[in-house]
């Protein structure tokens, strides 16, 4: 393992019943790197990033996050989840809490921050994602794009070292995609380590340090965006790109 690898996956395999979703994934992500994962649906890309914060349990192989191994040890899982923020396709905001409460819940109860401290930081985050005026509303009162930006702020509130994005723009109206992508670009610029599962090729091209192509539970091809979009090596990659570009 290289010293600066903040995420280190070795031969990760996962089955859902008889179906093998991951067929041995090896991946090292260095601090500050932005990795974009693309691939057809059912290729295991979402499953893979959900393994990184243990929303799914991998059955073979090893995952180290910040040198802590993900095992059945509850203490390790809790430590890793504190360090890894996640943004979901369907936002998953807590509908019974206000925007501010959504953001401050984990800092108060998990990090044991005081309410005023957590709220001050929460306001700062809302400022950063561009919706400071929505703090006292409920998620149901916001548009999809605003909700997804709140979800980003909620994940950032725990001051994670790594952010996972699971198709963050797939459930959005086209005109709201940009505001979410902008927030993510901002984050990448600030040096956050990010793993992004997305179908937004423009984002991949512009922001990614590395693009990974997943198919059939395997990491088929990896490379810089330039290499990837101009000179893909693998036939499967070429086919996929020819279909979507």
């Amino acid at each position: 393992m290289t010293d600066q690898a903040i995420i280190d996956c070795r031969g990760v395999k996962k089955w859902f019943g008889d179906f093998q979703a991951l067929r041995g994934i090896d991946l090292q992500v260095t601090k500050g790197e932005v990795v974009v994962i693309i691939g057809p649906s059912g290729s295991g890309k979402s499953t893979f990033i959900r393994c990184i914060n243990r929303l799914e349990v991998h059955q073979e192989g090893q995952i180290f996050v910040d040198r802590i191994e993900l095992t059945n040890d509850v203490r390790n899982i809790e430590a890793i989840r504190k360090d890894v923020g996640m943004v979901f396709q369907s936002f998953n905001l807590f509908p019974h809490l206000t925007i501010m409460q959504n953001i401050t819940l984990a800092p108060i109860w998990v990090k044991k921050q005081s309410k005023s401290e957590a709220e001050a930081y929460g306001r700062e985050l809302l400022e950063r994602v561009g919706i400071p005026e929505q703090a006292d509303k409920y998620p149901g009162q916001l548009s999809g794009g605003q909700q997804q930006r709140v979800a980003i702020a909620r994940a950032l509130a725990m001051q994670p070292q790594i952010m996972l994005f699971d198709e963050p723009t797939s459930a959005l109206d086209p005109e709201m995609v940009k505001e979410v992508l902008d927030a993510m670009k901002e984050l990448a610029k600030e040096g956050m380590t990010m793993i992004v599962v997305t179908h937004e090729m423009g984002f991949a091209r512009e922001v990614a340090d590395r693009v990974l192509f997943f198919d059939y539970g395997q990491l088929v091809e990896a490379g810089t965006p330039e290499h990837f979009f101009t000179n893909p090596q693998h036939d499967r990659t070429k086919l996929f790109l020819s279909q979507i570009l």
């Binding site: 914060n53 243990r54 998953n92 994940a155 725990m158």
Partner: peptide, 21 residues
């Protein structure tokens, strides 16, 4: 929805906190 549980876990809540809050 299952997403609520996942979001709760993802921000680091424990199972009991998740259930309660």
């Amino acid at each position: 929805p299952r997403g609520q549980t996942e979001a709760g876990f993802a921000v680091g809540l424990r199972r009991s906190q998740l259930l309660r809050m």
